[in-house]
Each structure stands twice: as C-alpha cells, then as structure tokens.
Design a protein around this nucleic acid. Structure first.
Lengths: 328, 328
DNA sequence: TTGAAAGCGTTACCAA
DNA sequence: TTGGTAACGCTTTCAA
C-alpha cells in the first residue's frame, strides 16, 4: 500500500462510478444491495479509507471539537482529565475528534479559539472551568460559533443564561446528600469548609450543606473559609478548633480542603471531600464523585442533538446528580 | 464575515493572482517587498486565514500528531497530563496540532492508529507508556509511520532499539541522586521500595539506588517489592519493619509507594517518591521530578528535526536528567 | 439507481 | 517575480 486508495480506485475495482462509491458510503439506503456489496468488498480488498481532509474541505465540516487543555491544578487536576477522557470516547463514537489547545489565560484562549474557527479547524468548542465574568460564552455566541459549557454560566444575565447550552454537576445536591447522610449517622455538629464567595461552585456546595442542616432543624453550624490549599486548610481548621469551634464532622468544597481538615482533625472525625480524587481514595477520605462520563455524553448531546454534526446554535442544559463515595 | 475569505478574495483586493498570495504566505522571500506589503494588508483587512483542510488536502500533510489519552492511573495520572500539556504547547509553536484518541488496550490502540493513518488524519504519533513486549514500535516502523516514544523501547532487540526514536527521563540517575543525597545527610540504612521485575522504569530506578549504595560501600540494604498501591505498600513496609528490617530512610519507585511507606514509617523517616505528584507536594514528601517540558520538546525535535513537518523516519534518542525536590 | 460534471480552497508546476 | 493551469480526494447537484 504505497499510495492510499481513493474513491476512484474503489470505483474501478467495483466497476461503478465514483459517486456510487460515495453514496454507498454516506447514503447506503439509496444504493442497490448487490451494488453495495460489490463496493463494500472493493473497499475491503483495497483497504480504502476516506481522506479526512478532502471530505472536510468538501463538506465544510471539520468533525472536530476544540478543547483547552488546562494547566494541572493540584490535586483536582484529574477531574478535567477524566472528563476529557470520557469526552474523547463519546466523541469518537459520534464520529467527532478532539483537538487540543493550551492558553495562558482567557484572552489568550480567545485568540486561540479565533484562530481555530477562522482556519475551519473545528466545528465547535467544549468550554470547561466556567467562572464569574467569563467572557467566552458571549464572545462565541456573538460570532455564532457553536459551543457547550461544562459548568454553569455563572453570573450571566438570566435571559442569556437561559439560552446558553451548559452541562453541570449539582454540587448542592451532592453536599446536601453528604450532610444528610452524616445526620442520619447521628452526627449533629457538622461544619463546612469552603472557598471565599463569590464562587459559583463553592457557593452551591455551601448551600447544599445549609439545605440539609435547615431540613434537620440544625442551622448555625461552624462555617470556615480558605483558599484551595492543603496547609492553609489545615491551619484554618486547627485554629478554629483551638478557638472553641465545635464540630464532630466536616464537609468540604474540595478534596484539597478535606485533606487539610483530615490533618487538623485526625482520622476519627469524618470528613467529606469533593471530586473523589486519587488522593481521597488513597487516604480513605469520603468524597462526592462527579458523573464525568455522563457529563461528557450530555455535553455532546447538547452540542450535536441526535445527529452526527454540530448544531448551528446549541441550547438547553443538563444538571447531573453526583454520588457520595463513603469510606470507613 | 458571513463567508470566510479565500486566497481568491485576497488576490482580488491586492490586485495579484492567487498564486502570489500563496507565495506571500509560504515563501515570502520569493515575493517582491511591495507586493508582499499589498498582499499582507489585504489579508489584514479581509481577516483571511488559510483553510486548514484545503491546505492539508493539497500538501498531503495533516500537521497533526496523534496521542493516546490514557485512562487516569491513580496518583501519577498527572504526569502524562503534564507531558501532554507541554506537548500541545510546543507543538503549537511548531505549527502542529495534537489529536487525541483513547483505546481500551494496545490492540485497540493499534486499530485506532491504523484508522488515523489511513484517513490521513495524522502525520505521526507520540507514544507514551512503553513497556516490555510493546508491539507498537514494530507495527509503526513496518508501515513507515513516523513516531517517537516517550519511554525507552524496553525489551526490543539491541539493533532495533538503536534506531528507534525515543525520549526518556533517567530514573536511574534520579534515584542515584536521591540516595546519594540521603547518604550525605548521614543516613546509612536506606531501603528501596519498588515494583516487581521485569519493569523497565522500575528496574532502572532500583539500579540507581544500588549505584549510590555501592559507591558508598554500603550494599545489601533492605529491598521491598509490591504493586503500585498505597495500602499494599503500607502493608509491605509495616510487615518488613515488624520482621526486623532496619531502615532509617526509604527511596521508592513512585509517589504511590512513597505514600504507603510514609504511612508505615511516620513522618520522622525520610521517604523519597517519584514523579513529584500533587499528593507528594500536599503531604510534604520529597520526590524525583521529571522534566516533562523538556521531554516534550525533545520528542518534537526527534520527530521533526528543525523543520515544521514530521521527518519520514525519525531516529535517535534523548535521555533527560530528573531533579529531586526535597521537602522538610 | 447510476453516472457525468462541477467545485470546495489550497499549492505545485511551468511558462511568461 | 508573477500568473495560468492543474491537481489533491471528496461530495453534491443534476441528467440519464
């Protein structure tokens, strides 16, 4: 196989014209069965594969989705990694490919996005790590570039947020479930360790904790705040306990914080983290696990509907339920 | 910008022919300066970008490299992630893109690779996680598909290994340095916790430990073996100590093992891991850090030489020195 | 149901 | 140095 076979080669072997080969490939129902068979066996013997670039040039579709590969962020880096993995798999099943790019910051990301769009390199984007004041959704929507967010459009106006396509995991429900479970197990003084406000995900998770406490008639529990850093978390919790804070269990906004809390409180005080990272698993810390495979599938559903190409203007959203992984 | 501009549009605006625009883009030195200026300003005003697929169809180069995104493997998952990140950045700087694919196992990986090659989707591959009996290098070499290994061609015949292109980090040097440093600090009974043989990287790392001990005239130290799992490691070390093994420091083949050793020995016995994962950082465990950015750059150097396209048959190799990150 | 012809946007070749 | 012409491999009209 010095030179890859083309439609013309297949057509010659099958004794039909090029277009018939193309039809056999793309609209098999329109070709007579025995012709179809001849074409298919010709494809088989020649080891023919359509030339991706040629097809893309003709169809004006790249069948490719752009995804920014973000810098690894500490312990939770594996989360986006797992999402990406699931995304690649589901995309493959739908005939789509994932093209990576990196960027220093959001402005740089928009520059890259612009280049990819203008070079017709991608049909759309999956945007991760949404945040308050995120300029990307607006930028893309203004230019009619299809996209879907993994993460809610925090801080967007209500009308805009309503039509923006996004997939997210319901952190509030996750922490609500974790807290409720601890309450059932008899714990009464359940503290929360989270990030400073405003933080989309962080505030959601705090609300989940509050929901469960309110439902149990136990408001006003200990609430601590610090940056997402193990030593900082250890220090905050240690100081709070020294100052007389009463907790017999702690739910946290992340595994990083949970790890700090565990160091401060020892193994006898139940701690629940978020993201179910390998660290939580290794240290036997309970954690809220995001259904990342489902999230990836949902993102593609929103972006592509039931078809095999990206919708011109995706819309709608999906909020997925996480599950709590309990460890001794 | 309803319809993206093409070379023809640029040519019309600049008052030249299509070909001159193409030349201005790809071989500017062959175009007269003032013509070049006219073309460039036309490109500017039109916001023209070459259509990637059209160019690829014509040049028969995809300017794309295929990389398998592997399942996240516990604590060390971040390593390939960081390598991938660096690879995307360096590739971008060289006008190359990274296309991801996933696979269940090596056979499935070869199937994917075949598909990508036959569809002219990629110009070559960067293969990670090489292992004894790896069929991929042979498969690709047999078909003249360019590739480079991140990891040595373990277990390949000497002649074949000699011409195979690979980049790797010298784990042996890393553990030698770590062990030597501990020896200088006065530790004399330095144990090693590693993986079962044969393991390319694992055996290398063990040799590094042995090198340093032999140089210091202190052979026959405690050597332990277990699978790459935290609890297994904890158990193995705990049992060894209970059985009378004498160690006042331990170097390990991975951060996972180091974590287990830390649990078994407590914070007063120095433990050195490998890969400098976020976990090691969070727990204050010293670790050998791989220069992943350099590895990615070296991989592309091997694959592309100094040019902007993949070499037909890359060859040569590069062994990089890791550094030890010491923590209190 | 099948075939002929056109064209997607680009670059390579050759002549001017 | 510049421009005309011809592909690259594919799909999409439109006729037969």
């Amino acid at each position: 196989m010095s030179q890859p076979a083309t439609v013309a080669d297949v057509a010659a072997v099958a004794g039909v014209s090029r277009q018939t080969v193309s039809n056999a490939l793309n609209r098999p129902e329109v070709v007579r069965p025995d012709t179809l068979d001849r074409v298919r066996s010709a494809i088989e013997t020649l080891g023919y594969r359509p030339h991706a670039s040629a097809r893309r040039l003709r169809t004006r579709q790249s069948s490719t989705l752009g995804v920014r590969l973000e810098p690894v962020h500490g312990i939770s880096g594996a989360v986006l990694d797992r999402f990406l993995h699931a995304l690649v798999e589901h995309a493959d099943a739908r005939g789509m490919r994932i093209l990576l790019f990196t960027a220093r910051d959001v402005d740089d990301e928009l520059t890259h996005i612009e280049r990819l769009v203008e070079g017709s390199d991608v049909d759309g984007f999956v945007l991760t790590s949404t945040f308050h004041g995120d300029p990307r959704p607006g930028w893309l929507a203004d230019r009619d570039v299809p996209f879907v967010l993994f993460g809610r459009p925090w801080g967007q106006s209500a009308e805009r947020a309503e039509v923006l396509p996004w997939v997210d995991v319901d952190g509030r429900a996750g922490l609500r479930a974790a807290t409720a479970h601890l309450l059932e197990a008899g714990y009464r003084r359940i503290g929360f360790l989270g990030w400073p406000s405003p933080s989309g995900q962080g505030d959601e998770r705090r609300h989940g904790w509050q929901d469960a406490l309110a439902a149990a008639g136990l408001p006003d529990q200990v609430q601590l705040v610090c940056e997402d850093d193990v030593s900082a978390a250890t220090e905050v919790v240690t100081r709070a306990v020294a100052d007389g804070a009463a907790v017999d269990a702690v739910v946290c906004a992340s595994d990083t914080l949970a790890l700090g809390a565990r160091f401060a409180l020892g193994p006898d005080v139940p701690v629940v983290g978020y993201d179910d990272t390998p660290v939580a698993e290794a240290l036997g810390i309970s954690s809220v696990e995001q259904p990342l495979g489902d999230a990836a599938a949902a993102a593609l559903d929103l972006l592509m509907g039931t078809g095999r190409s990206v919708l011109p203007a995706p819309t709608g959203h999906r909020l997925l339920e996480p599950t709590v992984v309990w460890r001794p």
